[in-house]
């Protein structure tokens, strides 16, 4: 790791102010993406600004139609939350599938979506549930937030403060883990909203990161059942291909994971 200066602000405003002062500052939340990258010397922030101890950024709230998770809430705390388990069980399940227990104790929802790794789990939930990302500047709809590999709509220095998930009628997540990294080789999140709309997002599969799958959405809208997808074929164009999963295999996984997610959603 290159030399850096660590800061621990106690408010969002202080964090944002520190950011503008650093020549090449970076926010740090759980550090479970940023620190490995810094250890590999692939990132060299002049300043590291820790959001993980800002009280306003930790915790979650569940209302009648929304689950709101503050940015620095850990995967563990989401997975273990009774209210989340009751409101959107698929979301708690997804959080419980991220990495391993030690990763879940540190990694945060904000860090995950700000990073937008093409194989990360949370982006699938955020996109499929049509969540709203709130920052210290504005609110961004999920459909506008993810901009391809490792890039998002966030402006330089903008801080995610919370993610608000509308509670759906039904939702399910099914993940086929990458055998080595345990990220998603392919993960599919299926949602039936309270208004009857269907939204489906896949992660781990596309060369452009998380994406919605129109063919599956259409089929499920017509008939919300695993069997409805039997006749759907997913083209492998634009899908990732590597030693762990060729593009045609990932195309198959999108369909199979979607079927299993629907089955889990009930």
């Amino acid at each position: 790791m290159y030399a850096t200066t660590y800061h621990r602000p106690s408010s969002v405003d202080e964090a944002a102010a520190l950011f503008t002062k650093g020549s090449e500052a970076k926010y740090l939340a759980g550090g479970h993406t940023l620190i490995p990258v810094m250890k590999q010397r692939l990132a060299s922030p002049s300043d590291v600004i820790d959001l993980g101890k800002i009280k306003d950024l930790i915790g979650l709230e569940v209302s009648a139609d929304t689950v709101t998770i503050k940015t620095a809430t850990t995967h563990h705390d989401v997975a273990a939350s009774g209210p989340v388990q009751r409101a959107i069980p698929a979301l708690a399940h997804l959080a419980s599938m991220i990495g391993d227990p030690a990763v879940r104790y540190r990694g945060t929802i904000g860090g995950s979506i700000a990073n937008n790794d093409p194989a990360a789990d949370y982006p699938a939930a955020v996109l499929a549930l049509g969540a709203t990302i709130r920052t210290n500047k504005r609110s961004i709809a999920a459909d506008d937030f993810f901009k391809g590999l490792f890039s998002t709509a966030l402006a330089d220095g903008e801080i995610i403060t919370q993610v608000a998930f509308p509670i759906p009628a039904k939702a399910g997540y099914s993940k086929f883990p990458h055998p080595a990294s345990r990220f998603a080789l392919t993960g599919v999140f299926v949602v039936k909203t309270k208004s009857g709309d269907v939204r489906v997002a896949a992660t781990g599969a596309s060369q452009n990161g998380v994406m919605r799958i129109a063919a599956i959405e259409a089929a499920l809208k017509a008939n919300w059942s695993p069997g409805a997808l039997d006749s759907v074929t997913i083209p492998d164009k634009g899908l990732m291909s590597d030693i762990h999963g060729s593009s045609d295999y990932r195309a198959n996984l999108i369909k199979v994971m979607a079927q299993r997610a629907v089955a889990a959603a009930g």
Binding site: P179, A180, S181, D242, I243, H244
Partner: peptide, 23 residues
């Protein structure tokens, strides 16, 4: 089932960490 060290055609290792080499 899991392990295999792979090089690309130029001799660059494809599986050079626990992220890619399945332990």
């Amino acid at each position: 089932l899991l392990e295999g060290a792979v090089y690309d055609v130029n001799g660059q290792p494809v599986t050079a960490s626990f992220m890619d080499y399945t332990m």
